[in-house]
Simulated scan of single mutants.
Amino acid sequence: MNRFCTPWGDLELTRFPEDPRDPLRAWDSADEYLLRHLKGIDGEPVDMSGTVVVLGDRWGALATALAGFGPVQISDSYLAQQATRANLARNGRPADAVRLLSTQDTPPPRIDVLLVRVPKSLALLEDQLHRLAPRLHEGSVVVGTGRVTEIHTSTLKLFERILGPTRTSLAVRKSRLIFCSPGAVAERGDNPWPYRYTLGADAGAAAGLSVVNHAGVFCADRLDIGTRFFLQHLPRHRGPARVVDLGCGNGVVGTAAAVANPAAETVFIDESHQAVASAEATFAANTTGGKAEFMVGDGLSALPDGSVDLVLNNPPFHTHQSTTDTTAWRMFTGARRVLRPGGELWVIGNRHLGYHAKLRRLFGNCQLVASDPKFVVLRAVRR
């Protein structure tokens, strides 16, 4: 837990799930810069009356600090939403002080103040600006914030094209602000998301499947090479089984497994609302009445012990700008808990990440199923 000093008081904040060993903070200088600007510490304060929307708040730092204004937080991340709930409670803010919406929910009909924490995904920013633009008016205040490494010319052009005239601040502690004046734009165009494509022959047995990607999903405009390699080496189990596509992304792996084994029940799980919506659309585009469940959540925490026969997993090794194996380790330990005796975890990963050592330590076994110069497919069995 760390103390975040804001113009509206000091806050005790953590990420979610809370881990006392985690050295990463729940805020950064971009959050600080935006809050100082809103308070008018370096100029005129911003009028915060009306409907305040906070888009892309990483761990609830902004929404918690601004809880007195009754903001609406719009987030793609289930973990960020849970962090916001926990941080509100930790700092004595009422649970209903912030209205939590996902990026798939309908935005408020009118937005008077829009605060944007610039996401890593330019596509997600494009999609959300398109969704929010009709709710803004000429008097709306729009301020974005991000690290200088997150704000590019392409970022500013998106604000300019979709919302209106845009400029940036000077950099302070490696962060910038974006100021946008909503108004008439020449050619906003239609929202291009979600994006659809069909898998080619290089996807192995999954060739011909239709893939639907909402904005912000990893490699949303094409099949990434790791997933392509995984699809070529999926297990060929037949008959009734409960299969989990863990960290499902667009759901193509779980959908390929479901098409190959129609008797299976497939569970698609991701912490991203955009990903789960993509997985549901991908499954619907390729199956007729198959058994499936779609869950936005914290890994496998919602599933009971010993309830699964097969877990398919392509774990992320980044969280925002940080490289870490924490998420992969939690996914592996969760898989061991939910697998029945004899159940299997299949993992695709970069060779250099050394997942085989973690799986041997956790399961007591690990088999190399396939490899190429960059990736390995590993299999661990629950004894």
Rank of each mutant, 00 (worst) to 15 (best):
R3M: 04
F4Y: 13
L11Y: 04
R21P: 00
D28L: 10
A30H: 09
D31M: 00
E32S: 14
K39T: 01
G43P: 03
M48E: 01
G56R: 06
R58A: 12
L66D: 07
A67Y: 00
I74T: 13
I74M: 15
S75Q: 07
Q81P: 01
Q81G: 06
L88Y: 08
A89F: 04
P107W: 00
P108M: 07
I111S: 02
D112L: 02
D112R: 00
L115M: 07
V116C: 11
L129R: 03
A133E: 10
R135F: 02
G139Y: 09
V143I: 15
T145V: 05
G146N: 13
R147W: 03
H152N: 08
L156Y: 03
L156W: 01
L156S: 01
L156D: 03
L163Q: 03
R167G: 11
K174V: 08
S175N: 09
F179D: 08
S181C: 04
A184T: 14
A186P: 00
R188E: 11
P192F: 09
G200L: 03
G208Q: 10
L209P: 06
L209F: 10
L209I: 05
L209N: 11
V211E: 09
V212L: 05
N213A: 09
L223T: 10
L223P: 08
L223S: 12
R236K: 14
R236Q: 15
G239F: 04
A241M: 15
R242C: 15
L246S: 06
C248G: 05
G251M: 09
T255E: 08
T255F: 04
E265F: 06
T266P: 01
D270E: 10
E271P: 12
Q274D: 15
A275H: 14
A279M: 11
A281E: 15
K291H: 14
F294G: 13
D309R: 04
L310P: 09
N313D: 04
P315L: 06
P316S: 11
P316L: 11
Q321G: 13
D325C: 00
R337A: 09
R337H: 03
G343L: 08
R351K: 15
H352C: 02
Y355Q: 04
Y355D: 03
A357H: 10
K358I: 12
R361Y: 05
V381C: 13
